[in-house]
Design a protein around this nucleic acid. Structure first.
Lengths: 154, 154
DNA sequence: AACCCGGTCATACTTTAGTATGATTTTGCC
DNA sequence: GGCAAAATCATACTAAAGTATGACCGGGTT
């Protein structure tokens, strides 16, 4: 049924034809009746002005306005961890101290951490004490809390 | 300077006046030169059709067609916490024990937890000992780790 | 060479955490 | 009312955590 595409064109063509016919008739009438030329021409002008307006309104392409709506989508995804280097430097936390912090957050005891890093228990105690100072906390549990908040550990 | 409002109206009025003048002149010309009526009227029709189109395009409110595009935006957002009741029951963890667990995860010491819950330090020790058993861990840091993994705490 | 810093370790001590055991009270439930 | 689980508390102890202080070493800076 692709003739639908031409429906409008056909309609306009017919309308135009009808108008021309009307024009002919009017011309005849006015000439015969010897009415004034001005009225006739005025009428034509009015008529075709109307036609123009109508055509324009019908055929004018609508302006497309795109509205982008941002839709929030909650992704339970594991926001991949990226270390906050700035905070590290700001707090003056060294590489070794960060290692200790990470193992702490995994629930290891000082003794286990010492074993992992091949150093003595006392060394780990020193590291953790300095860490608590730098993180301004009192206990390892608070240290883990703070470190996670500051993006120092996952 | 409110006369600006009528600028367009004035402009259109003037244009119309000019057109009428042109009309008069054309009429004179065609009548004097005895040109055919049809050509004259056709010209008028064309002219005013154009005028109509122009008027319509100028004055009509532009048709707007809104296109809505939904754009997905990833929000690293606060994955809202929902307690895992199943795990709680499976491990046989009581309400009170869960409370203690939560305060533990906030980095509170046993003494501080006792103060918060208006009970003795020994009570908290008992609770935490039972918790470690149920969670199959040895230390509070591991307990917090495990509890977070099992969705018992945020 | 003198200096600082990070890392290491030790000793000595205090505090907190965690275990074991037993007892009493509270509470929900049949 | 009586039972069981939960909650409370105590004593006594061990283990771990945390503090304070001082020392040593090696790499990099001035």
């Amino acid at each position: 049924m692709h003739w639908f595409k031409y429906k409008n064109a056909l309609l306009y063509g017919l309308s135009l034809a009808l108008l021309l016919l009307l024009l002919q008739w009017l011309e005849f009438r006015f000439l015969v009746l010897s009415h004034s030329m001005e009225v006739y021409v005025g009428f034509i002008a009015l008529l075709f002005t109307g036609l123009g307006v109508w055509l324009a309104l019908k055929l004018a392409k609508p302006k497309k306005e795109t509205i982008v709506i941002e839709k929030e989508v909650h992704i339970p995804a594991p926001t991949e961890f990226t270390l906050n280097q700035n905070e590290l430097e700001r707090l003056g936390i060294s590489k070794r101290e960060l290692e200790v912090l990470q193992l702490m957050s995994e629930g290891l005891s000082n003794a286990e951490i010492a074993e992992r890093l091949f150093v003595s228990l006392n060394t780990i105690k020193t590291h953790s004490s300095k860490l608590f100072e730098k993180l301004d906390v009192k206990r390892r549990t608070q240290a883990v809390e703070a470190a996670k908040r500051l993006q120092l550990i996952p």
